[in-house]
Write a protein that binds this DNA or RNA. Structure first.
Lengths: 200, 200
DNA sequence: CTGCATAAGTTAACACTGTTAGCAAATATA
DNA sequence: TATATTTGCTAACAGTGTTAACTTATGCAG
């Protein structure tokens, strides 16, 4: 009869309306200020309607997180296909990854759980400096050791810190079945690779 | 007269009481569920008292973030002092960084703004796989290219991804005056270093 | 075409949250 | 002792996510 089809269509319309309204709000005000009430207001339905389509607020954000990973995969595929040699591909993908993250900050923040209010001020206080200075000084000493003083220590310092932070935060998020020993092997290998790359 | 001293002492006691109660709650229930009301309840004062000591809730969390950076700096210093050669120091500091992060997850999450609810489920959905498979496959191809197929591609993949994520998220948090061009140089240098390290 | 069951959508509430204005009580000073 | 000041409290405002209970609209069988 097409009645159930029409109903389904209508239901789907509301669902995508919720997502559209929510995404619009995420883009304009950030995901921190997303609220069920505001969504309901935007789609001109009452609040409980939203709960017929999503279990809770988190489920809506999760939807965007999924979308983000899909888009990211697409972007990486495209980048890879532009060049042939694997190392060039790794480089192209790195740039693509980077660009995606900064052109889609909201996605990236949702994907990796970044952006609590406090971290906006991370650069504002001095406590962080004590940590960075010791990192930087050691990097400089290491560059002297391998006779590569002309290298930009600031670049190397950022790479070093990023490897550490990246490894830690991805491991924290993943919660996979990896053993501690295996996790430490990842760390060891990455740091060894970094130390070797200091000589260049 | 010592009266103002006694008052100051009392004020300081309340302040540290607030922090102690807050930190206890962060440790037991996570910083997401920290609430001014619960703190007030714990220190047996009314709610507005807390606002005499901290401008808002964020300021309390920021306090812990600062503490975290201080402790981290201490840990890095200690690690560095255990060995002499700079590259060994970098390795020791890396382990120390890692251990600190996982032994003090709450600190680390506050320091770098990790831990929105959605990211707890990042490993649960399939969308992330599409992204990781393309990373892994390219890593494997690159290892073939440099005749280093016996290397553990999984380790290398984690290093690669971590460098990317680390660079991105630290740059996102920092909001420093770096130019885009400089930021890309950091990225380029780090990726080049990684690609070179693939041969080992 | 009417009565009824089901689905759709609403109101209103619960239990929270951060934050602040206005008032009462305790304290220190003149 | 009387006044001024600090200290702390009550109570409210303006939000939040979530859900129980009710009403209205819709589709279907008799």
């Amino acid at each position: 009869m097409g009645i159930v089809e029409r109903k389904m269509r209508h239901k789907e319309e509301i669902r995508s309306g919720i997502l559209a309204a929510a995404w619009h709000m995420v883009l304009t005000d950030g995901w921190q200020s997303l609220s069920i009430r505001k969504i309901a207001d935007a789609i001109e339905y009452s609040i409980p309607v939203i709960y017929n389509h999503f279990e809770n607020k988190e489920a809506i954000l999760l939807e965007f997180s999924k979308e983000g990973f899909q888009k990211m995969a697409l972007v990486l595929h495209e980048a890879k296909s532009t060049v042939d040699k694997p190392d060039a591909q790794l480089e192209a993908m790195a740039y693509a990854y980077w660009d995606f993250a900064f052109e889609n900050k909201e996605y990236y923040q949702l994907m990796f759980g970044l952006g609590i209010p406090a971290c906006e001020m991370v650069n504002q206080f001095a406590e962080i400096k004590e940590m960075t200075t010791i990192l930087i000084s050691t990097i400089r000493e290491a560059l002297v050791q391998v006779n590569n003083e002309q290298a930009d220590y600031f670049l190397k310092y950022h790479a070093y810190w990023s490897i550490l932070h990246g490894l830690v935060s991805i491991q924290m998020i993943e919660k996979s079945g990896k053993t501690d020993a295996f996790r430490k092997m990842i760390l060891k290998d990455a740091i060894n690779g970094f130390c070797k790359s200091l000589a260049f």
